[in-house]
Structures are given as structure tokens and as C-alpha cells.
Amino acid sequence: MADLNTQPPPPYQREQLAISLLAFALLFAFATFFGLTQPDITFFRTHAFAWSSALLVTPALYIFVRRHGIAPLTHWWRLFWTFAWVMIAVHLIWGLGLEHDWQPLSVFERQGFWIAFPIFLLQAVWLIDIAMTWTRYDWAWPTGGYKVWQGFMWLFVLANFFVAMVIFRNDTESLVIGLMQTAVVVAAFLMRWNEREQSL
């Protein structure tokens, strides 16, 4: 409790919810309805939900790099971070439920431990992080252990998406989205570094 920051959270603006929700809803609708035109609707939707999650998490990854430790995180971050998790949970439901017939062990059998384990771990720890984000008063101004936790989560989520989208690159869409996400994160670091240089 000693680390708990008592600064008030940043102000909420309706457009933050409007735009993040719109992005989530349109991507969800795209996966649902465009899937009808695909040869394998389940396969497409499973992947489209993953692509959508990668797209939704990208603004959150960007904001986090720009602000973590130097400025309060914003509602933009929290909303995109949350919607990205919801979308990856939908991806899990589709993948595990419809493609693996709700048999988690088959995911391990098919993909191997070192690929399957992080998938489930990501779902769990990201959910814990989301829960903290919506329940902790200091979500925007983390300090101490919570700040480290947020940094770890950022890295863990980024690493998971990078490995899945760029290293494994099961399809062109994954590679393009993965590279775009990587570019955005690199750009965020460069901008942060540039701002730091200018402020010195």
C-alpha cells in the first residue's frame, strides 16, 4: 500500500469509449460476416479475431511506451487494452471450442508445450491485469511493484503477438499486422527517445 499512488485518474472523454468501442464492434462484425464468404468460416473467424485483437492492442502498446513512467496512462490505453483482451478471449473460445472441441490438451498435443502454454498463460495473466486496471485507483499512475507488473504485461503481450504474428506468420494477414504493430511500437520508442533528448 505504500506504493499506492493517490493522484486522481485522468479525465474521461466520451470519444475514448466511442472510438475504441467502434473499432471493437466493427472488427467483430467483420470477422462474423466476412467469414460467411470464406471457404472455412470457423477457421477464418478464429484467425480474424486474433488479427482484430492485434489491431486493438496496437494503440494500447503505443500509448504505454509513450507514457509509462513519465505521464499518466489514459483511458484510450485502458479501453484498447481491455477490448484487445476481450477479442483474444473470443479468439480462444473459437479456437479451443470449435477447432479443438474444448480439449485444451489437444492444443498442447498439436502445437507443443512451448507454444500452447503461453497462449493459455496470456489469457490468464492478461485478465488479471485487466481486472487490476479496472479496480485499482492507481492504474494510470502506477508505482512500485504494480508499475513493474504493468511493464512486464506490456512486454509479455507484445512478445506473444510478435511470436504469433511475425515469427509464425501463418498467413499474410498475420505477418502484415504483426509487422505494422512492431513498427508502431518501434516508432513509439523513437518518439519517446526523441522527446527525452529534446527535454535535456
Binding site: A18, L21, A25, A29
Partner: peptide, 25 residues
Amino acid sequence: VRRAVNIAAIVVSCLALVASLGWLW
């Protein structure tokens, strides 16, 4: 105008979600 656009975006989002979830059901 900004307020109207925000409300419109939320309404469109809700419609898209209801349509998608309804279709899946």
C-alpha cells in the same frame, strides 16, 4: 457536433455488436 458524432459511433457500435451476436446466435 462532436457529441453527436460520439453518440452516433456508440450507437453504430451497439448495432454492429447486436447484429453480430444475433447472427451468431
